[in-house]
Design a protein around this nucleic acid. Structure first.
Lengths: 316, 316
DNA sequence: GCCCCCGGTGAGCTATTGCCCATCGTTTGG
DNA sequence: CCAAACGATGGGCAATAGCTCACCGGGGGC
């Protein structure tokens, strides 16, 4: 008897679900049709959902992305995660994620109350600031997490902080330092000087950090851009470096290395685990180990990537 | 540009749909996530539905039934239609539809304001009244559409009206007449006599009619039950009879025949097209042509049947 | 046999949703 | 280049849905 009632109840639940989701009736109408109170109709619809009698199928490339983002968020306990559809024409294209990063910056900067945004390295970050919608927010602050003088002493390679400040009217704080100093002592000396300490203090209060993630292999961006020499890169790789964020190299478990270039690096060191909103932006198969390590080591608590990369991270 | 905006809008719609139906967020939350007003989030969810980006799938036998019922309702412009799952163990079983008919009767009889229910022939109708939940409604009226004296002059074959009245305390009006009279003249004379005219007048005001549908073939119920002879049956078949409702034979287009037993029949003739609620109840492959004809001829405006029969009717 | 517990029920309150409308930006035609 | 027309937007309101609560009735344990 119990089984029969159960079955009949599920039948009714299915009926209610059909009438609600497929036929598009209101629960009131369904209640009248099935001769029950509206409350019961609502329960039947709930039951239909709870028992998974009805399933939703979203036939759209976005669906897979949402699914991947949800899984990444869950797996790595992220505060924020976005996965954009992979562009089959250009698998490494940063266009997609740059757009999302820009959107995120837009959202953050739209705030009327003053916010502090910190920017790291990375092509996606550079592309993102270019796409930010101009808006007048003179009370915001934009701060750089990395030195903007390259190894050869030349001018800033790419002034993300300045560009973003242009678009918002915000005060901006580039870090007038070389990427690497010549020794640990010198680095320690430099980061204590007044203007740098001030930048550091502001960065520490940042409401949002947007950083790129670099892999530490022969094509490492820090080397390609001329910030570290081939020898320095190889040394870090020997020491176990698998990725870097704002130049800070970390190993496969996401632990910051305490040797090599990390000792001479002027960049503001990341919080471990990441505080407030620290969003990593990166795409590409080559970056998968670096991204995964950063996630595991909690160097970041947010991620913006593409479908292919997201899938690869989850399948590791 | 237009195409790109369009695409991006659909992407957002898909995102919104995913967040709403799959992740279970409210539209307010989605609005915040997508950085739009709640109204826009609502529009995106609507769009997702309208564009059929999302589909609902109900994995339950009931789903097919609901679908068939909706199609029958649409195709034949029915006021009411129910399709019950076919019982594979007993394809002709009336149990399923009887339960639904009983439910319908329950619903009608539950009314506090007086209602008039008219009953026709059919096993499903008989079974239905047996399943009606007892309820005290002395002001209701139950009226028979057919004579309850069989050809051999014996007592009522099965007193549906009386049974239903027992269960409700309603006044009941059986029709104290033989099913067939010996001639057209005699029939016309009988139906004018006071008690019969009164039954007829009540029946004309019925709020709901529940009738069986019989096929006119060698296994016709009217013959099996002994109401018409083999010769009479064959004559009607020659005249084109394909089905009958309360004994009234009709052809493949649902037109009442004006000859044969129809001229001697005492049953109250059906309204064409059916007025108020006239529900046919029938299952079985053999009855498909009869049911389809009744639907096409608008002899009924409601149908209760099973899945297999519904499918067969729609596939004709 | 009696009582407790569980699952179900409907009332009623609040959150959520759907939709209308005034407004505004954008596009198209003159 | 302007104006009209169209479409999208967000506020606001009425309808709808979700949920909590107190209550009821049946089934099993003591």
């Amino acid at each position: 008897m119990a089984a029969e009632n159960e079955k009949s109840r599920l039948d009714d639940a299915a009926r209610a679900g059909w009438l609600y989701f497929i036929a598009g009736h209101t629960q009131d109408e369904i209640a009248k049709m099935l001769q029950v109170s509206r409350a019961s109709a609502q329960r039947l619809v709930s039951l239909c959902l709870a028992e998974r009698l009805i399933t939703f199928r979203l036939e759209h490339p976005i669906a897979a992305c949402m699914e991947l983002a949800a899984r990444l968020k869950e797996r790595f306990d992220l505060a924020h995660c976005e996965v954009v559809p992979a562009d089959p024409a250009a698998p490494q294209a940063t266009a997609g994620i740059a757009e999302r990063c820009a959107n995120l910056l837009d959202a953050t900067l739209r705030s009327e109350t003053p916010v502090i945004v910190a920017l790291g390295t990375g092509r996606a970050v550079r592309a993102a600031v270019e796409r930010v919608t101009p808006i007048d927010r003179p009370n915001h602050q934009i701060v750089s997490l990395v030195g903007n003088i390259s190894a050869d002493g030349s001018a800033s390679f790419y002034d993300t902080v300045g560009r973003l400040a242009d678009r918002t009217g915000a005060r901006h704080y580039p870090m007038p330092l070389p990427f690497l100093m010549s020794s640990e002592d010198e680095r320690n000396k430099m980061v204590r000087i007044e203007p740098i300490a001030k930048v550091k203090a502001i960065a520490a209060k940042a409401d949002m950090r947007l950083v790129g993630i670099g892999q530490m292999d022969q094509k490492a961006q820090v080397h390609v851009d001329g910030f570290v020499t081939r020898d320095e890169l190889f040394e870090m790789m020997r020491l176990g470096a698998i990725g870097e964020i704002t130049g800070w190299a970390y190993d496969a478990k996401g632990r910051l290395l305490k040797a090599g270039t990390n000792k001479r690096l002027t960049s503001i060191p990341p919080d471990v685990p990441a505080k407030t909103s620290t969003i990593g932006a990166a795409v590409g198969t080559a970056k998968v180990p670096a991204i995964a390590a950063a996630l595991n080591g909690r160097l970041i608590n947010g991620l913006i990537t593409d479908e292919a990369t997201a899938r690869a991270i989850l399948e590791r």
